[in-house]
């Protein structure tokens, strides 16, 4: 049974346990299950996007526009429901659709026009956060206070509890299950891996890789839309700068989760564990009395160290390759 679990996920699980023990010893309040469950609210947005950015990175692309889409969907929810007076759930639905459309734009330009993913999502990041600012500016809402006054039903979406467990925990596991089944249990998921491992061979075996790649960006955009809605509900106001600092934690979660940044390898379970590790790390350091602004140091180091550590086998094989090439070359190359 144990053999079936990928090694890295086991390591992540052990890190999580170790983290809980260490922070618990620093501050026993950390062991309170309610505190831990409530902390899901703080990183749920990161985790949701990270699940589907994992898809994108497995295909060999990258999506850095997620944080901007959060701000845009948050503003769309706010304006449609508070300024235009639409029903809040219709507004939520439309906002998630907007997130999906942003992803679709990214995906089409990347897969069909074959522009680099980094360039398009960088432009997308500027564009979507810019459109959010424009919407706020045109609607005349205050940039700093944001749009507030949401109905209690909407606020409860993220703040409510079921059987004493916050909704965000359920949302986390529901989306994790969805992403897991989609990536690891369906033919579509296998196609994503194959596209990432070798796009040409995937193309030759009859897979429409462009469609597959586009669909991963759409999923990533939709998930950012969901995250934007949840964040708006959790904080009770809609602002254009929500999610502006999410780029780094999202990528940390994906990369620490064991997904190769070059594509072809990875999984959502690792991403989920890594996002919990990063979330608890933040919580634990805060409870340990460390100021919020210093926490970036820990996550930054975690990001670099985890990638360096994961890269070691690749590093070894590269050394081996270089050595064998030298042997084959003989001594005449310099002549």
């Amino acid at each position: 049974m144990l053999k079936k679990i990928p090694k890295w996920n086991l390591v992540l699980f052990l890190i999580l346990i170790a983290e809980m023990i260490i922070f618990g010893l620093m501050n026993p309040r950390f062991w309170n299950i309610n505190v831990l469950l409530n902390s899901f609210n703080d990183f749920i947005g990161i985790a949701i996007i990270a699940f589907f950015v994992t898809f994108v990175i497995i295909t060999g692309g990258i999506d850095i526009s997620g944080g901007a889409i959060i701000g845009l969907t948050s503003v769309v929810v706010g304006i449609l429901s508070q300024v235009a007076g639409l029903n809040i759930w219709v507004a939520v639905f439309l906002a998630i659709v907007v997130g999906g459309l942003c992803g679709l734009l990214n995906g089409i330009l990347i897969a069909y026009a074959k522009v680099q993913a980094m360039v398009i999502t960088l432009g997308g990041m500027l564009l979507y956060s810019g459109v959010a600012l424009v919407l706020v500016g045109v609607s005349g809402a205050s940039t700093y206070e944001g749009i507030s006054g949401f109905s209690q039903g909407f606020i409860n979406l993220a703040n409510g509890k079921l059987f004493g467990i916050p909704h965000s925990v359920f949302i986390f596991f529901a989306l994790l299950l969805f992403a897991y089944i989609l990536l690891h249990r369906t033919r579509y998921g296998r196609y994503i891996y194959l596209t990432g491992i070798n796009q040409n061979s995937a193309e030759y075996s009859g897979i429409d890789t462009r469609k597959i790649i586009t669909s991963t960006y759409v999923l990533s955009g939709l998930s950012a839309g969901v995250a934007g809605v949840i964040l708006t509900s959790y904080l009770g106001s809609a602002r254009a700068d929500f999610g502006a600092e999410y780029l780094m934690p999202i990528l940390t979660a994906v990369v620490l989760g064991g997904t190769l940044i070059t594509g072809g390898k990875g999984g959502v379970i690792g991403t989920a564990l890594a996002s919990i590790i990063v979330g608890f790390l933040k919580l634990g350091l805060q409870m340990g009395g460390i100021q919020t602004q210093y926490i970036g140091l820990a996550t930054g180091l975690l990001l670099i160290i985890s990638v360096a550590f994961l890269g070691v086998p690749e590093f070894k094989s590269n050394v081996k390759r270089l050595v064998t090439i030298k042997k084959d070359r003989g001594g005449k190359l310099n002549a």
């Binding site: 780094m248 990528l251 940044i261 210093y294 970036g296 670099i304 990638v307 360096a308």
Partner: peptide, 25 residues
């Protein structure tokens, strides 16, 4: 980090961005 540890440059410099900011603070 990029050449010896073979860390992807995007990740390496993203981490360094965050670290430099915190050190500044």
């Amino acid at each position: 980090g990029v050449t010896k540890l073979r860390i992807s440059s995007f990740i390496m410099t993203l981490g360094m961005l965050e670290i430099a900011r915190v050190v500044q603070v």
